[in-house]
Nucleic acid binder design. Structure first.
Lengths: 198, 198
DNA sequence: GTCTATAAACGGATAGAC
DNA sequence: GTCTATCCGTTTATAGAC
């Protein structure tokens, strides 16, 4: 009941955090209860975990739920009142990239376990929608293309262990920022001269 | 020795294919030898698998290697002599999307196990380079942005179980195709200083 | 709430008959 | 090359002392 007691993180929450880290890193199947216990300072292999959760399966949605709440809170505190902002495209792209980094493990878990566990897919998908709203992103096609590109860039840079096609982050954002929808009148002529054509 | 015998797929190759499917679907840790045996028609739980491979670990790089060979061969037969092609951006984007679909499971496996198994990361990364060359893609920044966007679109559409931000494939490609670098006069100042900025 | 001990099931791997 | 049978380590989960 004391202020101190209220501030100390419960073992249950520590377990949820450790479990989420492991699930996102190596997947649900590869994660053992023993490793989770070890990470929070419990004796590995003792069933102490089971005083807090009744099964490993029960842990998965609970860990996702907790991480989603934290991510949403973080987005709200990091980008308050961004709705009215009028800003250069590059600033917006950097903000989206920060957001994608913050939610990187959630997205990875979605990729890993989304198929197998529909509840996770639904929870993460709807939370992403909430955060998109917070970021005041109206979802125009050009914006979606930008976010998709950042998504791909981030995921594969991580997977490859080097910048995607050796383009560093600043270069990538700069390239994205200079892309804009062509006006109707320009389209035909420019289509035959651009550099992506061989 | 007979023509028929040469054409019949060996059990070893069936095992490699089944293993690859499972690894890409549910990951290495989540895949059991029993399930692999079941998929190729062997009795699940019998050690028949071990007449072909000495361990589960040995199976992983072998399965990736086989799938990489098949993917490269498919790309060559599907897009022969594309080097000289002059084509609209949208056609190029659709071709890249086809390629990404063909290599989707390889990319998923890279995401899943690349960190844990450097050999897989290296093999897939270098094969992707080979295929990029086959597709005669010079890797200009605008092109890389396009491929990254398609990558993100494809991966997350699959993970979400619906089109990414509810934009269907044709719309997405159309949006990508109409994006072009703004003219120098509009952006040269920002663009030239961006790379040095933090 | 955590520990020791242990049950029960599972998964990787081997031996030997056919 | 496949099967039955089995070994053994690991993992999930429970019981009971403190």
């Amino acid at each position: 009941m004391s202020t101190y007691a209220a501030k100390r993180v419960s073992t249950r929450d520590l377990l949820l955090d450790a479990a989420f880290d492991l699930f996102a890193e190596i997947g649900f199947a590869g994660t053992t209860i023993s490793e989770i216990e070890r990470r929070v300072g419990l004796a590995a292999g003792s069933g102490s975990f089971y005083r807090h959760f009744s099964s490993k399966e029960e842990l998965l949605p609970a860990a996702v739920e907790r991480e989603l709440s934290k991510a949403i809170a973080d987005v709200r505190s990091a980008f308050p009142d961004v709705a009215q902002a009028r800003e250069p495209r590059e600033v917006w792209l950097r903000r989206m990239l920060m957001w994608l980094r913050r939610t990187e493990r959630l997205n990875r878990l979605l990729l890993l376990e989304g198929d197998r566990v529909p509840a996770i897919r639904a929870a993460i998908t709807s939370a992403v929608q909430v955060m998109s709203d917070e970021l005041s992103w109206d979802g125009d096609p050009a914006g979606i293309v930008g976010v998709a590109a950042l998504h791909g860039y981030l995921l594969f840079s991580r997977a490859i262990g080097a910048p995607y096609y050796d383009i560093d982050e600043d270069e990538f954002i700069a390239a994205l920022a200079t892309l804009a929808p062509r006006r109707q009148s320009e389209t035909v002529q420019q289509a035959s001269t651009r550099s992506w054509q061989r």
